[in-house]
Write a protein that binds this DNA or RNA. Structure first.
Lengths: 168, 168
DNA sequence: CTAAATTTTCAATAGTTATTGAAAATTTAG
DNA sequence: CTAAATTTTCAATAACTATTGAAAATTTAG
């Protein structure tokens, strides 16, 4: 396979992959493009390579910066802004896990804690099934939280040993 | 908080949570409803409790069955079909991980293997950046695959010890 | 069989999310 | 400052996804 074709393929697939995980296709494609680009790209470069509008490019670049997956870089003697992506995928994974945990898992655990204290007699089948389900989800969620926290802090080299420690 | 309100809250939140992960809101809500229901529910029960149409209920129930998160049950003396959800959340997590891995991670790794063999001179900066990025993603993906395979096979009780083994 | 009950399908449509593109705001070189 | 370059905003609209509801298909009781 030729480089140009392989690049196309990767950008398209990364975009499709993203949509399955609730990530905007364009955002994932811009990220992919920057991942495989040796040099920083300008908004114009991105617009051209992905055939998207300026507004779309701008919005999604900003979102990527907000997720700390992309950085603005200044190129000497250039007025335009340029952008690069973090190339270390392990860091990228950690960053995404960190953000999604903060935005989604933490609030969910907070809600579960409230729902577990529902009023009513535990001998009532309806109440028991509900509180049992919530407690069960809370427990698994709590486990996930601990694991993810370790993963977020972990340097790849001590990923293994750290992961082992949390279960001590 | 009263039980009825807590149930509502849980179903709504589970639905919202699902959408952030690329899962249809109704599908997640039906799943939530069945998780906290002591007895199996019919399509009519689900339609009524979620205020959705028969078609919508049918489609999403079928999708949940396809994901093996929901089962049809026969209620003696009843003509209608009834449905239950697996109540053990640990099993649910494993099932979801198993399906998503099969549907998404495995094909992605297959693609990365192809893309890594792109034609061209490795001394070319463009080629090198591309193959390095792909190799890097492939490596992290491979690590994820091993971890998830262990998680899928793991019984909760030996979750810990199994997880430790993969990194030996 | 027959017909009532139930489930499934799917075209029409509603609802949601993404994208455009041009105007407004901001930045910077001179 | 001034004006050109660049970035940002956002209303309009396109594209995509979910939902309805009624007709068709299937199942089952008698």
């Amino acid at each position: 396979m030729k480089l140009a074709e392989a690049k196309q393929q990767f950008v398209a697939s990364w975009g499709a992959f993203g949509t399955q995980w609730g990530i905007n296709r364009t955002m994932a494609q811009i990220h992919a493009l920057l991942l495989i680009s040796p040099d920083p790209l300008s908004a114009d470069d991105i617009m051209e390579q992905l055939s998207i509008s300026r507004g779309n490019a701008n919005m999604n670049i900003r979102e990527l910066i907000d997720w700390a997956l992309v950085n603005r870089v200044i190129v000497a003697g250039e007025r335009k802004e340029y952008f690069t992506a973090e190339k270390d995928i392990w860091k990228v994974v950690r960053q995404i896990v960190k953000e999604r945990k903060k935005r989604e898992l933490d609030p969910m655990l907070k809600l579960l804690d409230e729902l577990e204290n529902v009023e009513g007699d535990k001998r009532d089948k309806e109440v028991k099934t509900f509180t049992d389900a919530i407690a069960n989800i809370r427990r698994v969620g709590g486990q996930a939280e601990k694991t993810l926290d370790t993963l977020i802090k972990a340097d790849e080299s001590w990923f293994i040993s750290s992961l082992m420690k949390i279960f001590k």
